[in-house]
Amino acid sequence: MRVIVPVLTVLAVIVALWYAACIPMNVKGVLTEAERAGAEVNPPGAKDRRDLGAFGLVLGNSFAIPATWEQARPRLPAPHQVANELWNTTVMKKITSKRSLVYHGWVTLSATLLGFAIGTGLGILLAVGIVYSRVMDMSVMPWAIVSQTIPIIALAPMIIVVLYSIGVQGIIPKAIISAYLSFFPVVVGMVKGLRSPDAMQLDLLRTYYASSAQGFWKLRLPSSMPYLFTSLKIGIAASLVGAIVGELPTGAVAGLGARLLAGSYYGQTVQIWSALFAAAILAATLVAILSVIEQRVLKRMGMA
């Protein structure tokens, strides 16, 4: 209760603000349509209205307020329009339909998961290499850290086109972008995690005459788990962004990014917002799944 009531209040305030913002954002379009339909508008003529502020128009034409929440192509769709569109394009459509968000979401999700698996696997391997080899630590680790400060996503359009020109297309290029976005957070987090046992614990293993491999499996790997899960959660969110951005430059026909792009070409704002919410729900679900796994695993290991 301590959390739910404030969160619901904040969400209610956000929805209320959203509805309120729809009025000034959409009023000009509504008035133009109303005038075409023959209604009395104050002042008449789209030209005269252009220079007026949105709030003045709302005050002068209060009859138009309900219509700002019902436009077909509003500048800012109202929450219930987005919810409607989401409902219609997920539950009401067959999932094989090209207009179903489940279909587009699956296209993006499959690239995300494939990329995430590749990126995480390679990231963990590189982290192990860095922890066990002084040369790799000194020469590779600084680059892994620097790469975090680079807007690496700028590479995305090029990767798509280059892979296309050598005949690779479909899910693989998007998965590669996803993979390298999730790669570096995992490397950095995992190196931190594998180094987290302190000198006393390492010494204890040495007094047990434990081999290097035993030290890895029994001490370093288990104690890196909290760090691993933290970076996995960052990594999967980054993977999803990568898959979405990977759909932008080539004008892909399927996927959430393609829905965003098509919506922005044709001014279908409701479509953009519903794709955006679908992506948000997808991201939240993926992170939530990882959190549940994290809790289970850490509890099992006696760490949480």
Binding site: P6, V7, L8, T9, R75, K233, I244, S264, A275
Partner: peptide, 29 residues
């Protein structure tokens, strides 16, 4: 304190979202 308890979970949730997807909307506006 009320705001903190309400806004922080929402903020944490938003920080994990693919916010870059708002780009087409903001470019339109």
């Amino acid at each position: 304190d009320f705001l903190r308890r309400g806004l922080l979970p929402v903020g944490n949730f938003m920080a994990a979202l693919p916010i870059v997807g708002t780009a087409p909307i903001l470019v339109m506006w």
